[in-house]
Nucleic acid binder design. Structure first.
Lengths: 182, 182
DNA sequence: GACAATACGGAGACTGTCTCCGTTTAGCAA
DNA sequence: TTGCTAAACGGAGACAGTCTCCGTATTGTC
């Protein structure tokens, strides 16, 4: 990639991250282009769809997911605590931007989605936590990590759309956890 | 209301119901106006916001909710069956239109939402089912009908956004039910 | 049949998406 | 350096959707 192209691409992503944080994932793309000091054509050349841009914005965030899962796994406590702790982190992770939970959870399991790789990272992180608990024979074994990701994602989506406080989300996650544990 | 106004209003709602069914809740309102043979101004006078129109479209559907809850309550079987049956009906009810689950569940608990009354009907129907099961000492009593509505609504939202088959939704509802039962 | 009051409707302002294409620039080779 | 070409730029503008304003038309009443 040419140096100027790389420069523009980076700036667009940087601006997009900030604008998405302030206005949510449905912010105007032309506005992002303008703020980044490029024309709309440049933005759309680099990122043909909104999801492609979102994917780029999320890139930095991916590493954080693995790390968070590691922490959850190292968490002291009984299986219920471990699971709940992971659920809360999961919700936090996908709720960084308004509209994020719906976007991510909706794309979960969609092979063709531009943010597919991000979903896979989340799902596999979730899978790791689940596997450890399964090894302890703590969770039922007829559930897939995809189902769990969707269930927790569903709670996060509702919480995002209704502007719920974490304190209001917790009891819902507890019900999920209790349904999953043996 | 003047006779012509009533006529137009009815026709708009009728057309909207059909268009929403075909295209989802984010269909163009000007298109609905055109199909109903009125100007956009007329549509917006009757229904200042999209949600107001959606609310009107849902009106016919409300009676059906009560009836469905009655059927769920009369359902033969153990508490888990009753609960699961109701959950499946609930998901079906709010998934009539694409985008419906998110719309309804997002508005749940929002006092200012134009579709508030619809949410209340759903929530109270859910409350009735829950109350009966509580009377049988079958479900935990630290959960509200709002929480349950949100949990099941969350599953429905994800299912709607990912175009999941009912068969894929069922296991998720089972987890919810198991988390709710004592 | 006249006159308010009420309702209509469509032109058009505004916002956001996305493309096309003439212009500019980076990078390389002579 | 200079010249060349592929790559990239950017902004005008086509298009679609939302929503309003206001001149016109219709209704129902006295």
């Amino acid at each position: 990639m040419r140096a100027d192209a790389q420069r523009n691409r980076d700036r667009i992503v940087e601006v997009a991250r900030q604008v998405f944080r302030e206005q949510g994932y449905d912010a105007s793309l032309d506005l992002i282009a303008k703020q980044a000091g490029v024309g709309p054509g440049t933005l759309y050349r680099h990122f043909p769809s909104r999801d492609d841009l979102i994917d780029a914005v999320m890139q930095a965030w991916v590493d954080h997911v693995e790390e968070t899962a590691d922490k959850a796994l190292a968490h002291e406590g009984d299986p219920r605590d471990v699971l709940l702790n992971w659920f809360e982190e999961y919700v936090r992770l996908i709720s960084v931007h308004k509209g994020g939970p719906a976007k991510i959870t909706g794309a979960m399991g969609d092979e063709a989605s531009p943010i597919r790789t991000k979903c896979q990272v989340l799902q596999s992180a979730s899978g790791r936590v689940l596997d450890q608990l399964r090894a302890e024979d703590a969770v039922r074994d007829d559930v897939s990590s995809l189902q769990v990701a969707r269930l927790v994602g569903g709670v996060a989506t509702v919480a995002d759309q209704s502007d719920l406080e974490p304190a209001a989300v917790r009891p819902m996650l507890e019900i999920l956890a209790d349904g999953l544990l043996k």
